[in-house]
Simulated scan of single mutants.
Amino acid sequence: MDKYVKEKNIQSIFLVCGDSLQYLKINDYISDLSKRIKIVKFSDFKPNPLYESVVEGVRKYRESGCDFLMAVGGGSAIDVAKCIKLYAKLPGDGKNGSWLQSDGEVNNTELLVIPTTAGTGSEATRYAVVYYGGNKQSITSDTIIPDAVLFDPRVLDSLPDYQKKSTVMDALCHAVESFWSVNSTNDSKEYSRTAIELIIENIDEFVVGDNSKNSIMQKAAFIAGKAINITQTTAGHAMCYGLTSKYGISHGHAAALCVRELWPWMLKASEEACIDKRGNKYLKETFIELAEAFGENDLMDGCMKFQNIVDRLELMHLVGNKEDIEELSRNVNPVRLSNNPVKLNEDDITNLYKEIVR
């Protein structure tokens, strides 16, 4: 990183980071760097960051006068940094959600990210997520794709077991959903296939603490991120956000539960409810290719392999009631459903939630 700082002639850094930075080995380097150049830290945000946190970050960034942005952390830290870059040049103070109505302004300040999990893929995408008024806000702009990514495998050494499991499943769900998305391309499928194969081959060792697999999982998450940067996610992610906010489980856990039930349902419903313009034949071939990426030849065997991984990781189903299911069904984002190759109606969504929330 020293070489990068010198080449870019960086004089001051606005660092967006979580509180966990103090426990990571890379913090030693950042502390040493702060003796040589100005570093202003911003960590006033939580997982599933609020829009108000971004507004505060923009205010402090403007005051700092820093000429470079850096994010160290998981998806939340990276998303906050992306939004700070997007909104920093806009007029006003951003209060009352005013910046959410804008596409942002071009900001030539470069953004370097150092992911501390292997799952979100945010380091590779033009997307960010914040919450305003209790509702998820999806931010999209090509200008917020990070300019550079630094991977340090050591940051995963101390990642808690649950976070390891849920983040790697987030990456796997990204790859799976991108593969069957109506927006898929040959390039996105190749990214997805590569990510799936890397995860399948290494997940068991990774989740039990084999740190030699850290760099492989970082690579897989990054490649899966490149896939969804092309295609966006589908119904699995559309359905998972409500689970995260209502039950307090991690995003990857929620996505895994949704894809676990969605995949077999799609195999059964695709013949009659296919909405991919490339047609039923194409979609069936896609499901076959997806099974093969999982090392299986049969359509259902690929799906069952995914289910077995979720079960083996003990990412358990949730306990709820009829009112919970009704609320979850009402709040599914229809835009993400439009990316799904098989049409879901309200009854379909409700029935899938009944399998997830038992």
Rank of each mutant, 00 (worst) to 15 (best):
K305C: 10
K268C: 01
L172T: 08
M304S: 03
S138L: 15
M169T: 06
L290F: 03
A256Q: 01
E190Y: 14
T120P: 12
Q218F: 14
I275W: 03
I10S: 03
E355P: 01
S178N: 09
A273V: 10
T125E: 07
E272R: 15
E110F: 04
G279R: 00
H174G: 04
V176W: 01
G75E: 11
M316H: 09
V80S: 04
E323V: 14
F222T: 12
L111Q: 05
P160R: 03
D2T: 09
S215V: 14
A195V: 06
G279H: 00
S76G: 01
V130G: 01
V208T: 14
K25Y: 08
R358T: 09
G104T: 14
E205W: 06
K305N: 10
T125S: 08
E56F: 05
D276V: 11
R312Q: 08
A148V: 00
V40T: 13
G248F: 09
G252F: 10
Y132H: 15
P115D: 02
D32M: 06
T117W: 00
T143C: 06
A254I: 03
A256T: 00
N27I: 03
G121E: 03
G119D: 08
T234D: 08
V129K: 06
V55T: 15
P49S: 00
E63D: 11
A254H: 07
K60I: 15
D44H: 09
S34T: 10
S141Y: 12
A238V: 04
A124Y: 04
A269W: 04
Y162W: 12
V332Y: 04
T109I: 15
M169P: 01
D2I: 08
V72P: 06
V335N: 12
I199C: 00
R193L: 11
V259T: 10
I30A: 09
L33H: 06
M316G: 03
N186R: 06
S122T: 13
K354I: 00
E261G: 05
C66M: 02
D210F: 15
D347C: 11
W263Y: 01
E56W: 02
S212L: 11
K41C: 03
S53A: 13
D348T: 08
N331M: 02
V80W: 01
T143G: 03
A128C: 07
I78N: 08
L24P: 12
S250N: 06
N297V: 12
D298E: 08
G73Q: 02
V319S: 10
I30C: 05
I249V: 13
Y23M: 15
Y127N: 13
A256F: 01
I349L: 02
I37S: 01
H251I: 12
I223F: 00
S184P: 05
R59A: 10
F294Q: 11
D152L: 07
